[in-house]
Each structure stands twice: as structure tokens, then as C-alpha cells.
Amino acid sequence: MTLAPPPSSRVQLTDDGKLRHFLSVEHLSRSLLEDMLDTAASFVDVGGRAIKKVPLLRGKTVVNLFFESSTRTRSTFELAAKRLSADVLNLDISKSATSKGETLLDTLRNLEAMAADMFVVRHQDSGAPFFIANEVTPGVAVINAGDGRHAHPTQAMLDMYTIRHYKGGFDGLRVAIVGDVLHSRVARSQIHALNILGAEEVRLIGPRTLLPVAAESLGVTVFNDMAQGLRDVDVVIMLRLQKERMDSAFLPSEAEFFRLYGLNNEKLRHAKPDAIVMHPGPINRGVEIASEVADGPRSVILNQVTFGIAVRMAVMSMAISGQESSQNPEQGEDHGR
């Protein structure tokens, strides 16, 4: 007897294991994540061409459904969709619908009437993309562009792409994630991705106020001290520290946080000499990272952005093709003949 698949993978995979929504990295297989990275690699070159488009999503409509504003993330999704030749509709819901008392379900039903093929969703509530994926018309793909503190799977996958690009793979790698893990959807997705892809060790470094309860249960080692936590790591991922953390007693001051956990060249010495430094952006100079590191030779922060478009192209094309194969199962049979 096999165990029932966990709810998250049941929703996001087709019966034959293809991606049809991308909601969370958790419970996905190593081969699927590697497939995603390989597909992204084939798209990296597209950005360098004179004509930066491939026709994989021609005739498809992608709706960027952002309940939380984020110009950067939305722009990369928009660019990725356009490079796949899709039509893109950007909707900033945060101000319009919800203030008029319209429920998320009402909003969704209205947009479905526009015959969208894919929703790229950012929402302040953890689990919102799961809710949408469960309610949406069959055949429409849902991509999570960040939900509450839960997940930001495309960001995590572009980080994995970056790591693989610079380190060649994940075997034996030690990765430290530093700062406000408690509020970070990026960190949660990164932890799952690193563990699935076979990293040797994932470390979290931060004060106890910024680490989630039972953090070890995520499959990480926890450190409160930077020198110890950074020792011999191959990759340092710095997280953004929101200014409002100072108001709610998570921290006394930015200055003390920077002194203890801000990454400067001196602290970076504890990592391996060839360690790379990453950050999901936007960075707070002098809060979680010193300019000497952010602009220094070990920083790959800007490359992350470039790879981000290719990874999102990969995710979008995989989800659309997964949806098509589950909508037209006879095609799969033809293929097998």
C-alpha cells in the first residue's frame, strides 16, 4: 500500500506527475526540479538574441494577479510571459476589488470570464494560491508568486539555478540562509528546494525572534552566531529585513542587527574562499548587507535577476503543457504509440 500523496503535490501535479500548477516546492521530486532547471537553461540564451521571443505560449493569456504590490516580481513574470509570446494582463487588486468588499472568489470568477489560461498570484495570505488552484476552472494554471510567509517557489528555483550555475550542482554544498527567516516565504521555499536537490546542509542564522518555532523540523541546522554559522559554507543567502520589525519588538535596532548579522567582508571570511553571496532583493545596504559585499566579487545578486526570467519562462511553459496534457489525455496516448 502506498501512502496518499500530500495535499500540496496532489493539487499541483497531473495524475502522471507533470507540473500543472506551481504552488510550492515542497513534496516535488528531485527529477522534476532538475527538469525545471534544465528547461530554464534552454531559455537563458533567449534573452541574448536579437528577437527575444519563443512561441510556446502564443495565443495564451497570462493574468498577473497581484494582491500585494511588487513591481519587480511582476515585471519579471510579465517579461517571461511576453518572451513566451503570451498576452499579459496585469491586475493590481490590492487597491480595487478588496476595498469594495469583493471576495477573492468573486474576483476569480470575474477573471475566469476573460478566458485566462494562467494566473500568476501574489497574495498576503499563506495558502491563497492553493485556494485559487482548488477553485479555478480546470485547465487554468496557477503560479505562486509569493503567498504570505508560506512560499515563493519561483524565487527559490531561480536561486537554485544561480547556485547550480556557479557551483555546478548541490552535492556536498553547505548553504547558510541569514536573517529574518520567520517572515520569509523565500527562505521556506529555498530550504525545501535545497533539501530536495541534495544539498549537504542548510543552515539558518539569526536571532531567536526571527527564527520560526521548531525551525529544525524544516530540515535545517540552526545557528544564532554568524561566525559559527558561516564557517565553511559554499553559499550565503541574505534575507531582506523589513524596517517594521523594529516596531514590533523583534529587534532593538538596525545598527545592532547589522553588527551581529549584517554581512560584511570580515564576517564573510568565515565562509569558504569561493563562497557566493545571494539576496532575493531588494537589498537594504547597511542593514543586512554591507555595500562592500553587495557590490563585491562574491556577489551574484544581479545575475539572480537575469536567471529569474528564464526560470519563470520554464515554470510557465511546464505548467501550460501539464494543463494541456491533462485536458487532452488522448494526446498522451498518441504520443505513446
Binding site: 515542497e26 499563506s126 495558502g127 503567498d147 504570505g148 510567509r149 508560506h150 512560499a151 516565504r185 521556506r188 520560526p212 518555532v213 521548531a214 525551525a215 523540523s217 524544516l218
Partner: peptide, 15 residues
């Protein structure tokens, strides 16, 4: 509940 499940699901916890 502020425990391992809420930590993984990113749900704000009640300790």
C-alpha cells in the same frame, strides 16, 4: 498553533 506545521505552511502562530 505555533508549531512545525504552521512553520512550514507559513501561517502566523498562536503559541
Amino acid at each position: 498553533h505555533d508549531g512545525p506545521v504552521a512553520t512550514r505552511l507559513g501561517l502566523p502562530g498562536i503559541p
